[in-house]
């Protein structure tokens, strides 16, 4: 119940060195305040371990309690179709307190993306399947809330505090170096 069921592949959004020994994967929801709080933690971890950690974000929107979470996830996917996923991802999390549909449009505009195309994509649900695939892969991996982190495919059961996550990363690094030796 606590291992990643859908392996990391080219369909994923990957930040950092492709060959990094540690894969930090998050199932997150753009409207979840805990995910918002975890966002700077992830950034700090990537700064602390630039060569050792790559980060992957998968969508896990709880759409019935977070009315903008689905649209935000689809907007990030829309941005991805122009290779701007991470910029949109950062914009959304950094402005979580004012997340709304108009905000998503202005975020697209600020990245030079067509607001009209985004409106169309949201209306037709062009990216809803992709978001649902992420969500279901999380459900099958035992994700029960957000944020849920996996480190090298294993569920991280500690908190999302920097110290907890970095300790888990250090442990995995030690394992990897022992294996290499």
């Amino acid at each position: 119940m606590t291992t990643l069921k859908m392996p990391v592949s080219s369909r994923d959004h990957i930040l950092g060195d492709e060959d990094a020994p540690i894969t930090l994967l998050e199932y997150g929801d753009y409207e979840c305040p805990h995910c918002g709080a975890a966002h700077p933690v992830v950034k700090a971890l990537l700064q602390r371990y630039p060569d050792d950690v790559r980060y992957i974000f998968r969508h896990f929107p709880l759409t019935q309690i977070h009315p903008h979470a689905e649209a935000a996830a689809e907007t990030a996917e829309f941005a991805d179709s122009y290779d701007r996923f991470w910029e949109m991802h950062n914009l959304i999390f950094e402005n979580q307190d004012r997340l709304s549909i108009p905000f998503l449009f202005s975020a697209a505009e600020s990245l030079g993306l067509s607001v009209e195309r985004l409106q169309q994509a949201l209306r037709s649900g062009e990216f809803s399947r992709r978001v649902r695939q992420d969500f279901l892969s999380g459900v099958r991996s035992g994700v029960n809330g957000t944020p849920s982190f996996f480190i090298n495919g294993e569920r991280h059961n500690g908190s999302y505090a920097f110290t907890d996550l970095s300790e888990a990363i250090e442990n995995q690094l030690e394992l990897a170096s022992r294996r290499a030796a």
Binding site: D29, L62, I65, F135, V139, G145, T146
Partner: peptide, 16 residues
């Protein structure tokens, strides 16, 4: 607490 709520999760998984 809402984000980790079990019933909210089942609500999302309902179609499955």
């Amino acid at each position: 607490p809402v984000c980790g709520d079990q019933m909210a999760l089942y609500n999302e998984v309902l179609p499955e």
